[in-house]
Simulated scan of single mutants.
Amino acid sequence: MYFRAIYTLLQSRTTASATAILSRRSMACSRYEYVKSYEQDDSILPNVWIVIRIDGKKFHKFSKVHDFEKPNDENALNVMNAAAVTVMQEFRDIVLAYGQSDEYSFVFRKETTAFKRRSAKLLTYVTSLFSSSYVLRWPHWMSQPMAYAPCFDGRVVLYPSDENLRDYLSWRQADVHVNNLYNTAFWKLVLQTGLSNQQAEERLRGTFSADKNELLFQEFGINYNNMPAMYRKGTILLRKRVVTGELPDEKCRQAIVPLHEDLISAQFWKTHSEILANKYVPGTHNATEPMSRLLSEQLKSLEAPLEQQLKNNAKIS
């Protein structure tokens, strides 16, 4: 009886001590927890297209320090494309991404519930993931070591209708045409005729697209329409079921496909109708040779698990 009484007493004291500690912790939490009320609700409206656009900060300086080829550096553009592919692989609710120069736009489907549609969470995750991926993918495409890390800012824009979204993307692609045509003419004048930057600017001041096209053709023998489509139209990234005809089972070969097409035209939206469909299902892409390096490397990474799956199926049969 004596020892049982001692055990009961110690047990009660232990329970009381634990209760006191929990009570103090609870009081501490309740005392300071009020600061959470200062956080703003940044939940995005339902049933709207969410576009996150990232832009390079002071990329003119960055491209100069790293000696980007003028007016377009294919490898530098593909670093951007590779970083964007990483973002799309992380966020499966991104139905389309569009990039040009030092910017990329990511379109989330209307029904996405990623991060409970919290604007700050989506923006910071996409921007930071893109930035870190850009640094990691740099040596894969560029021969020159990175002198310093680039910086990207971002914004969230909401578009309520399909028409609004199409107009936004058309605006960004039209911007590519205007800027690239000017830059192509500008750098040809600087690099091949010896004009200074100021003299080239004065030469092009007040000219229209037709004038620049004529200048390129007459003075440099360049048909602007024959330049690589990536320079003239930017890069569109779409999630597709890629068919190559090499393997019997194509279901696992889903990849992010880079396209350089005219997304201003109605034909683009007919061809890729899954983008605006009520229920999003990735479309099919028939890959042909030569295949872009960006796509071929994705498919190679999928070959090993797919081949293993086929071996397993063969053993079962």
Rank of each mutant, 00 (worst) to 15 (best):
M1T: 06
F3T: 07
F3K: 07
A5K: 13
Y7K: 03
T8H: 05
L9Q: 09
R13W: 09
R13N: 01
S17T: 06
S17K: 14
S17V: 06
S17Y: 09
T19C: 08
L22M: 07
L22P: 00
R24C: 08
S26F: 10
S30P: 01
R31W: 04
K36A: 08
Y38W: 14
Y38R: 14
E39H: 09
D41G: 01
D42M: 07
V48N: 01
I50P: 04
D55T: 06
K57A: 13
H60T: 14
K61L: 13
F62H: 11
H66G: 14
D67M: 15
E74A: 15
E74R: 11
N75Q: 14
N78V: 03
V85F: 01
V85P: 01
T86A: 13
L96M: 13
Q100N: 05
Q100V: 15
Q100C: 08
S101N: 06
D102K: 09
D102I: 01
S105K: 10
K110W: 01
K110P: 03
E111W: 04
T112R: 04
F115E: 04
K116N: 10
A120I: 09
T124G: 12
V126L: 14
T127N: 12
T127Q: 15
T127G: 09
F130T: 00
F130I: 05
S131H: 11
S132T: 13
S132W: 10
S133F: 10
W138K: 01
W138T: 01
H140G: 01
W141Q: 00
S143G: 12
M146C: 10
Y148S: 14
P150T: 12
C151W: 04
C151R: 09
R155V: 08
V156L: 14
P160Q: 11
S161W: 12
S161G: 02
S161L: 07
E163D: 04
N164Y: 04
L165F: 03
D167W: 05
L169G: 03
S170M: 11
R172A: 02
D175G: 03
V176H: 07
N179W: 12
L181G: 03
L181T: 05
A185C: 13
V190D: 04
L191Q: 15
Q192I: 05
S196C: 05
E202G: 01
F208G: 00
D211L: 15
L216R: 11
F217W: 12
Q218G: 01
E219V: 03
F220R: 09
G221F: 10
M227V: 03
P228W: 02
Y231N: 10
Y231D: 14
K240Q: 13
V243M: 08
T244I: 06
T244S: 12
G245Q: 11
E246S: 12
P248E: 11
P248C: 06
C252L: 05
A255F: 04
V257S: 07
Q267S: 11
K270S: 05
H272Q: 02
E274S: 07
L276P: 05
L276F: 06
L276Y: 04
H285L: 07
T288D: 10
E289M: 03
R293P: 00
R293S: 02
L294Y: 05
L294F: 03
S296K: 09
K300A: 09
E303T: 10
P305H: 13
E307P: 00
Q309G: 06
Q309L: 13
Q309C: 12
L310W: 03
N313Y: 08
I316M: 13
I316C: 08
